[in-house]
């Protein structure tokens, strides 16, 4: 019986999503949203007892808050009738996902996401949204076009989504116990040591900054090791006696940066080429002249050629 409870929670969430998608704005939609969030919250509570354990309840609770905000904003994003609001809710999704990433100790990626997504990609979306707004003719001032008001076949869309979610739930609830165990403290310390031993300059700086009297050797590699769960640099002081210096652990950014250039240098170059090509492609695509584009534009912006030339003359 316990085995099907997660699927029931998934179904409840799906019913809520369907109500939100299909219903008109009003009590039905709000009720659907509450039902969906309740189903998801129940699912998260059930997942709390799975292996893969929580070491820190406060962090997990914060993660859950970010997760629920992200999901609620994502639902708002796909039901908003005005695309600008959709884009703004997507900003909220990105922000909450960044909070979740911070809880997962991916600090660099969290801030890179804020800069790249919220700062660059979303601004591009907003620009295109503003460019592609349809002019409203006098009678239908401010009216939302029908393709934004009426969803296309929400039942099958939610069906596909719930099948996908059921697969994820099945994998999560039955597969987690088969995973290799999570990295423990020793694995993390080993990773820190391995990183510090390939970054001699950082160790040199840390040792100098500590102010301990120590003679820096010519080669710093292999000089860092672990002792009682701490990172230490072993050397000799000016009198020739052995001395150890506590070294701060390298941060997330050091790890990510080193992995990037040490393990994926070619991919990094290719990523740059992809971005360059995308830029060329966007310029080539968007510059192409379309026949009668001017007339269409005049129709869209709602002013005829006479006004157009008039305003031109005014500006001269």
């Amino acid at each position: 019986m316990d085995a099907i409870l997660p699927y029931i929670a998934t179904l409840i969430a799906a019913v809520g999503l369907l109500l939100v998608l299909a219903a008109r704005p009003g009590p039905a939609r709000i009720g659907g949203g509450l039902i969906g969030l309740a189903g998801l919250a129940w699912l998260f509570v059930q997942a709390g007892s799975l292996p893969g354990g929580v070491e820190d309840t406060a962090a997990d609770v914060l993660f859950l808050i970010f997760a629920l905000v992200a999901i609620a904003a994502a639902v708002q994003m796909i039901v908003q009738q005005r695309p600008v609001y959709s884009a703004l809710f997507f900003v909220l999704v990105v922000m909450s996902v960044c909070g979740a990433l911070v809880m997962l100790e991916a600090f660099f990626m969290a801030f890179a996401m804020v800069i790249v997504y919220a700062g660059a990609i979303l601004i591009t979306y907003m620009f295109v949204l503003m460019l592609a707004q349809q002019a409203s003719d006098g009678d239908h001032e401010g009216e939302i076009p029908s393709y934004d008001r009426i969803p296309r076949d929400p039942v099958s869309a939610v069906f596909v989504a719930v099948v996908f979610m059921a697969i994820v739930v099945a994998a999560t609830f039955s597969g987690l116990s088969d995973l290799a165990p999570a990295a423990d403290r020793q694995v993390r310390l080993d990773a820190d040591v391995a990183l510090l031993n390939v970054l001699p300059e950082q160790v040199r700086r840390d040792v100098l900054r500590s102010g301990v009297d120590v003679v820096l050797p010519d080669s710093m590699s292999g000089a860092v090791s672990t002792q009682d769960g701490k990172l230490i640099f072993t050397g000799v002081d000016s009198a020739g006696a052995a001395v150890t210096v506590l070294v701060p652990p390298p941060g997330n950014t050091s790890h990510v940066g080193w992995s990037l250039v040490a393990m994926f240098p070619a991919s990094l170059e290719i990523a740059g080429v992809i971005l360059l090509m995308a830029m060329f492609g966007a310029v080539v695509l968007a510059r192409r002249e379309v026949e009668h584009a001017e007339e269409a534009l005049a129709k869209v912006t709602g002013r005829d050629d006479a006004e157009f030339s008039e305003s031109k003359e005014d500006s001269e």
């Binding site: 998260f44 893969g52 354990g53 820190d56 979740a100 989504a161 994820v168 999560t172």
Partner: peptide
């Protein structure tokens, strides 16, 4: 930040769905 893996996977699945 010792977050449960199951919660992260469910968040991922829900956003994808």
């Amino acid at each position: 930040a010792a977050v449960s893996l199951a919660h992260a996977l469910l968040l991922s699945g829900a956003l994808m769905a």
